[in-house]
Design a protein around this nucleic acid. Structure first.
Lengths: 122, 122
DNA sequence: CTATCAATCAACCAATTGGATGAATGATAT
DNA sequence: ATATCATTCATCCAATTGGTTGATTGATAG
């Protein structure tokens, strides 16, 4: 069956991903990482008017969503963005658009057919 | 300045959009609407093992996020998906990828230059 | 007028979230 | 041994969320 994977397969991962990106602070963190490459937690925290702990928690959420990878080198934790992970969201959006397009297409076919019938009847 | 709109412009809208799509029930509702076109609240509710009220609340969230439009005709509320709204998310993803690509490019240039210097020194 | 139907509103509950603070861990530097 | 640094863990708090049930609105049908 087409589009089956949308319904429940990957659903939990997708929810985590979308929830993780739905917070402005976390989106800024992702932007920083895309701009500057891997950063330490404290480096990231300097960009916010917020306790280090809160930033740490945000990073942990990004980590759980797989949007970020932690390479613990020495005492420092290097946080690295995982761009590939975004594809999962992309795919869901594409699927939704496909479903939508399919319906419009069917609708269009129906109208064309009816118009043909109309001309038959005239 | 490039990419300015990412940081805070549209940020609230984007957060609402992403939060709205981060719930599996709401994603299924969107899929139903893409598949079948505009539906009434009760029609949507039949697909879930959940009170009508809960479904109603989910729809209201989708509405607040602009992902869905309500056309109140007679006593019935026709709920219609707004596919255009997804573009806002698309754009943020594209922006993030551009930022990422720009950094990689700069990094690549740097390496090429250093390699050139190395051959100069040999 | 009354029963029914579509949908919302209001209140409640448990779980999660985004923030704070203070203590703890673990490694390096003096 | 002690001080410092990077980070997390443990609590706490107010706000939000996803769900429930019961009452309400507003229109239609008998």
């Amino acid at each position: 069956m087409l589009f089956t994977h949308m319904v429940e397969l990957e659903s939990h991962d997708l929810s985590e991903l979308l929830k993780a990106t739905s917070d402005p602070t976390r989106r800024i963190i992702l932007t920083l990482l895309a701009q500057h490459g891997p950063l330490r937690v404290t480096q990231i925290a300097t960009h916010f008017d917020m306790s280090l702990n809160s930033v740490s928690k945000h990073i942990k959420m990004l980590e759980r969503a797989g949007l970020v990878l932690r390479r613990t080198e020495w005492r420092e934790h290097l946080i690295e963005i995982q761009m590939d992970r975004l594809k999962l969201v992309d795919r869901w959006f594409e699927d939704l658009r496909s479903i939508w397009a399919l319906r419009l297409e069917a609708l269009d076919n129906l109208i064309t057919k009816e118009t043909a019938n109309d001309t038959d009847n005239n």
